[in-house]
Simulated assay, not measured.
Amino acid sequence: MATGQVSEMRQRQPARWGRNLLLLAVLLVVALTAWSWTRLRVTARTNTALAAQTGCLCRFAAGRSLASCEADPAVKRDWVGLHQDAAARSLTASVPLLASQTARWSPETGCVMDGWKD
């Protein structure tokens, strides 16, 4: 093997190591996500239900603005977004790809979660 070929191979090795490390990191993230997916979904569903219920009460019972309710520590949760439907008097809390819960306001019953029965 010529000296030029050996030095060329040595120059390509760092790029190969970097690519392999990146692939290993991606595989590790995928494996950890798959391993904890059920726990993530349960946590997300619980947080969205709490945020939807509390946000609904804040928005429709207390009459505060959505921005004011989003800033409230009782409503604000990691990764949870709030969306209102003023015509239906409902508030939906969601975590992308994991969970979504909706609470609807009625003067007779207050805020009731969609799909939940007592």
Rank of each mutant, 00 (worst) to 15 (best):
V80H: 10
A99V: 01
S106P: 03
G81L: 07
S65M: 01
C69D: 07
L57V: 15
D85K: 06
D85Y: 00
A88V: 02
A67T: 03
W79Q: 14
S65F: 01
C111W: 05
A62Y: 13
C111R: 11
A88T: 10
D72Y: 04
G81T: 13
A93M: 13
M113V: 13
G110V: 00
L57N: 05
P107Q: 05
V75M: 04
L98P: 07
G115T: 03
G63N: 06
L82N: 09
G81V: 07
V112D: 14
T92S: 11
E70K: 13
G110I: 04
D72M: 02
D78K: 14
A61W: 13
K117H: 05
A61I: 07
T109I: 07
G63Q: 11
G63V: 14
F60A: 10
K117F: 14
R104Q: 13
T92K: 06
E70D: 04
C69R: 01
E70T: 10
D72A: 10
P107A: 09
L91N: 01
F60N: 01
P107D: 13
K76I: 04
Q101G: 12
S90I: 11
V80L: 04
L66N: 13
A86T: 11
R64N: 12
V112T: 12
V95M: 07
H83Q: 11
E70P: 07
A88I: 03
E108S: 10
C69Y: 06
T102F: 00
C69E: 08
A87T: 09
W116N: 08
D114M: 02
K76D: 12
D78C: 00
G115V: 04
E108H: 06
C58N: 10
A61H: 06
R89P: 06
A67S: 06
S100F: 02
V75L: 04
E108V: 03
W105Q: 00
L91V: 01
A86P: 02
